[in-house]
Amino acid sequence: MRNPIADKVMGIQPSGIRKFFDLASEMEDVVSLGVGEPDFDTPWHIRDEGIYSLEKGRTFYTSNAGLKELRVEICNYLKRRCGVTYDPNRETLVTVGGSEAIDLAMRVMLNPGDEVLIPQPSFVSYLPCAVLAGGVPKVIELKNENQFRLTKEELLGAITDKTKLLVLPFPNNPTGAVMRREDLEAIAEVIIEKDIFVLSDEIYAELTYDTDHVSIASLPGMRERTVTMNGFSKAYAMTGWRLGYACAPSEIIAQMTKVHQFAIMSAPTTSQYAAVEALRNGDGDVQEMRMAYNGRRRFLMHAFQEMGLPCFEPFGAFYVFPCIKEFGMTSEEFAEKLLAEERVAVVPGSAFGDCGEGYLRISYAYSLEDLKVALGRLEKFVKRLKGNK
């Protein structure tokens, strides 16, 4: 019988994040710091708006591009927070989570053989989405000594005459790295000079701790070259509502909407009404959660310093990326051993690209109580390893 599965699908490996989540779920007394999901409930006034929409019988399809009211609020938000103006009618698309926006952008922008530059370590979806869209992923290895930021020199060294798209994954999952305005200005010069485009993943834009997020689309000459994607999962603790969006020049959004129309139809109606409330009245909730994450971030950095585990200081998202190279084992071996011996689940850095080897991703989207228990166990584990050296 002929193989029913396409070669390009067979060649894609399952997510390394889910592996450790699944292992931990089968064990008792495990503290899991592996999944990037806020431990906060969706704020009540947002949930209430979703409930109210059901009570009012708003269970119909919205337009393919999304509820007009929501698209207007998305554009208001981006103007207010990022200084970028988009047309809600022609330049905005509501998607099923930010992940759909990534997939759609690559599918409509890439021809077979077009190269996609993917800075790593980074979110696990970029590379397989590029492959599924017929593109050729080219990895740019981000470096600890640069605080895992993308530099102008690294970008220039990776561009060829086949390069079409750069993924810009900041604030970054898994490292917590951010790109400041001056960093973005330097790479924007290269992007314009080399005539390439950008997919800017800004899902963690609200979670920065020492400076406001800057969108590359706000820089001169970049709006017309950028697909900006974002969503509601991280900032508003709405992971299960599955809602994201993309904003871009109308010719790109029109094609993304066309594919979305055939593959999805429209995003969930209840989620869209809840998201309108989030954008209109959720700033206080975001600020409260951001302050809590920052306290946890500082606790983790102090704990790593106390146990002698090197970790650069992240200023975005809700992850830390400590280095475990001194212990002479792979990040997967370290994570498996930590889970078996101390019942703490973390994600190997290698799950986010080969250059993540020698690091761990630890999420602090968990309660301070859980973090204290987990870090106490990790400290015991590290001391034991150091004692055996």
Results as ranks from 00 to 15, higher is better:
residue 1 M to G: 14
residue 4 P to Y: 14
residue 12 I to H: 09
residue 14 P to C: 02
residue 15 S to Q: 06
residue 16 G to F: 00
residue 16 G to C: 00
residue 16 G to T: 01
residue 18 R to Y: 09
residue 27 M to A: 06
residue 34 G to P: 06
residue 36 G to Y: 12
residue 43 P to K: 05
residue 46 I to C: 00
residue 46 I to A: 01
residue 55 E to S: 14
residue 56 K to F: 13
residue 58 R to K: 15
residue 59 T to G: 15
residue 62 T to L: 11
residue 63 S to R: 14
residue 64 N to P: 14
residue 68 K to M: 10
residue 70 L to W: 02
residue 71 R to S: 05
residue 76 N to T: 14
residue 77 Y to N: 07
residue 81 R to A: 08
residue 81 R to L: 05
residue 84 V to T: 06
residue 84 V to E: 06
residue 85 T to D: 12
residue 89 N to Q: 08
residue 106 M to P: 05
residue 111 N to I: 09
residue 111 N to C: 15
residue 111 N to D: 04
residue 122 S to W: 00
residue 130 A to F: 04
residue 131 V to H: 06
residue 135 G to M: 07
residue 137 P to L: 00
residue 139 V to S: 09
residue 142 L to C: 01
residue 145 E to M: 12
residue 148 F to L: 11
residue 157 G to C: 11
residue 158 A to R: 10
residue 159 I to N: 04
residue 159 I to A: 03
residue 161 D to M: 02
residue 165 L to P: 04
residue 175 T to K: 01
residue 177 A to V: 03
residue 181 R to N: 03
residue 182 E to R: 09
residue 183 D to V: 12
residue 186 A to I: 02
residue 191 I to T: 03
residue 192 I to W: 07
residue 193 E to I: 07
residue 199 L to F: 07
residue 199 L to M: 01
residue 204 Y to T: 06
residue 206 E to K: 12
residue 211 T to H: 13
residue 211 T to P: 13
residue 216 I to M: 13
residue 217 A to P: 09
residue 223 R to F: 06
residue 223 R to W: 08
residue 229 M to Q: 10
residue 230 N to D: 13
residue 241 W to E: 13
residue 251 E to H: 12
residue 252 I to D: 01
residue 255 Q to A: 04
residue 257 T to A: 14
residue 261 Q to N: 04
residue 263 A to L: 11
residue 265 M to L: 13
residue 265 M to C: 11
residue 265 M to Y: 11
residue 269 T to C: 15
residue 272 Q to S: 03
residue 277 E to V: 01
residue 281 N to T: 10
residue 290 R to E: 02
residue 291 M to H: 03
residue 292 A to P: 04
residue 293 Y to R: 04
residue 294 N to R: 14
residue 297 R to D: 02
residue 303 A to N: 07
residue 310 P to A: 10
residue 312 F to W: 13
residue 315 F to G: 13
residue 316 G to A: 04
residue 323 C to Y: 09
residue 325 K to Q: 14
residue 331 S to N: 09
residue 331 S to P: 08
residue 338 L to F: 07
residue 339 L to A: 01
residue 340 A to P: 00
residue 344 V to F: 05
residue 344 V to C: 11
residue 353 G to K: 10
residue 356 G to Y: 15
residue 357 E to H: 05
residue 358 G to S: 00
residue 358 G to M: 06
residue 364 Y to H: 07
residue 366 Y to N: 12
residue 371 L to N: 15
residue 371 L to A: 15
residue 372 K to L: 12
residue 372 K to H: 14
residue 380 K to S: 13
residue 381 F to W: 08
residue 382 V to W: 11
residue 382 V to F: 13
residue 384 R to H: 13
residue 389 K to E: 11
